[in-house]
Design a binder for these strands. Structure first.
Lengths: 144, 144
DNA sequence: CGCCTTTTCTGGAATGAGTCAAGTTAATGA
DNA sequence: TCATTAACTTGACTCATTCCAGAAAAGGCG
């Protein structure tokens, strides 16, 4: 678990100003991977007291733009954020409860970037989402 | 381009009632792949006259559930629908203009379904979205 | 062919994530 | 410390999607 000064270094490294809301958001996302915006707001307020939701939205956008956070939004879910960036990993999403887990890329290093026919697009990223049923929901479904 | 009676057969095959809005929606999605809900409503109204947006939403959900349509919603975009189902293809999305194109699966037949570590999830589908820049936007960016 | 049940469609109101805008506050760098 | 500029607050607002209750139509059956 990184400390506040680690986060401060991260922010400075991205030439972003160091403010309490930003550190709180970074910390919240680090300790709650795949959390949605609302939960993040909750965690941040628990640490800092009153913080406007607007500030959290702004911070999330700034940090996502700077590459410190990654935004994911699987179908039917609101936006979620995670702190693992730059390691090209993917996600499994449970169809029934929405749980999300990380999955390292199956084939090796940044592999899935090959489309059979790219229609002239300049492709810079391949995003993979695996859909299925998490262990809990699988068990629950069997016993019913 | 399938005809109205083709769509009727599709609907009956899925044991869904055959109604004008449903045929119009099917037809609209077939002729406008990757259209968002609003455009679909527009096309349907052009063919049928007044149709409530609610009916279109209901129809889209029913058809998606029956497997006649597929819903896709890339980040930052509203829901879009397409009629190509059951052939495990993926999409390229342009980061700047949002254009979407189809991409057949890179490695062969339902290939990407292997995650390195599935965390106990029972995975039934792998969804791949390639991000990049479409030919138009690539050209526009160079000339600026 | 016409009735009955069930599903679908209409119209309008409601929900909720996310955005906009204007003004205030605070971090940074000289 | 002071000026500059980015970040935060407040509050209203947008817009896709959903909910609700009543009207209409589809399909099955006599």
């Amino acid at each position: 678990m990184p400390t506040a000064s680690d986060f401060e270094r991260l922010l400075r490294g991205a030439s972003l100003r160091v403010t309490a809301p930003r550190i709180a958001v970074l910390s919240a996302v680090h300790s709650h991977p795949h959390a949605d915006t609302d939960s993040i707001i909750g965690v941040v307020r628990q640490n800092l007291g009153a913080v406007s939701h607007q500030a959290v939205y702004d911070v999330l956008r700034a940090l996502t733009g700077a590459g410190l956070l990654r935004k994911i939004e699987p179908q039917g879910s609101v936006a979620r954020y995670e702190a693992r960036v730059g390691d090209n990993h993917h996600h499994v999403v449970c169809r029934s409860c929405g749980a999300i887990a990380d999955v390292d890329c199956a084939v090796g290093h940044a592999p899935c970037l090959d489309a059979s026919d790219d229609h002239g697009f300049a492709i810079d990223e391949a995003e993979v989402i695996y859909w299925g049923s998490c262990p809990e929901c699988t068990t629950a479904a069997k016993s019913s």
